[in-house]
């Protein structure tokens, strides 16, 4: 089997890289793929808690590259879906504990057995970022409709292209239809025009993300959540399906009314 490696990156922190990695990985597994999530944010590991797998860590990625354990020993199997694994980051080490070469080797090994390897990149453009993109075949950039996030996304596009990762795609996260309509938030078209790259998904702002992160259950598992649907669609697009973008929906009159009176 020759799996594909996708790095999820952004430049700016806090735009939803880890949430996106967790949900894309989960959604790909829901489609029947064998998936390994890699947390490349060494020293600031978080993909484990977002996935709800933090209590099952014995070994981590640094243990693997230092040969303290075998690769399979460090991979946590997610019991909710067949074929979903997490390779956690080390928490007490720093970014220099893994080199881009080691990362590439590790990914090559995983590719033999996996359909997809999803690498959650740390914020920034230094060593951790370089490690995260080292073995990637494809890059997905996460951004939000804010100047700072789009600016950093633009910078990342340039860096990825310099490293030979052509044609990255973008997820626009946390968009709010009501604010776009009011003219108080950049819309999808504005951002795509500026970044000049392909859109692979739009994830609406969804309170359910906070709830799902609280519980350690990726929102992709929730059939009723808009953001969950958005991530399931992204997974299908990654697999090559030509799926139209979900239209951005404004809150219904009832929901707005409930929010107004504090019921929702």
């Amino acid at each position: 089997m020759a799996g594909k490696t996708i790095v999820i990156t952004s430049g700016k922190g806090g735009v939803g890289k880890t949430t996106s990695s967790a949900n894309i990985g989960t959604a790909l597994a829901m489609q029947g793929n064998k998936v390994c999530l890699i947390d490349a944010d060494i020293g600031l590991r978080n993909l484990d808690v977002v996935m709800g797998l933090e209590n099952r860590i014995v070994y981590d990625i640094v243990d693997v590259v230092e040969s303290n354990c075998r690769l399979e020993q460090a991979m946590i199997r997610d019991k909710r879906y067949d074929g979903l694994y997490l390779l956690p980051a080390a928490q007490t080490r720093d970014k220099t504990s893994v080199t881009p070469f080691q990362m590439k080797e590790l990914i090559e090994k995983l590719k033999e057995d996996m359909d997809f390897i999803v690498v959650d990149s740390p914020a920034g453009i230094e060593q951790g970022f370089k490690n995260a993109i080292a073995g990637a075949d494809r890059a997905i950039i996460v951004t939000t409709p804010e100047i700072s996030a789009v600016r950093d996304a633009d910078r990342i596009i340039g860096l990825l292209e310099a490293e030979g990762l052509r044609d990255p795609e973008v997820i626009i996260n946390r968009i709010r239809a009501d604010m776009v309509d009011r003219g108080d938030m950049m819309g999808i078209d504005d951002m795509i025009e500026i970044l000049a790259i392909d859109l692979i998904g739009i994830v609406p702002e969804d309170e359910g993300i906070v709830v799902s992160t609280n519980k350690g259950e990726p929102i992709a598992l929730n059939d009723n959540a808009k953001a969950g649907q958005a991530y399931r669609n992204i997974a299908r697009r990654i697999m090559g399906e030509d799926l139209p973008m979900m239209p951005l929906e404004k809150d219904s009159f009832i929901t707005r009314f409930k929010k107004l009176v504090g019921l929702s």
Partner: peptide, 12 residues
């Protein structure tokens, strides 16, 4: 001006 247009111009 709408703040979105300001953002877009500053970003560009």
């Amino acid at each position: 001006k709408k703040s979105k247009s300001v953002a877009k111009e500053r970003l560009q």
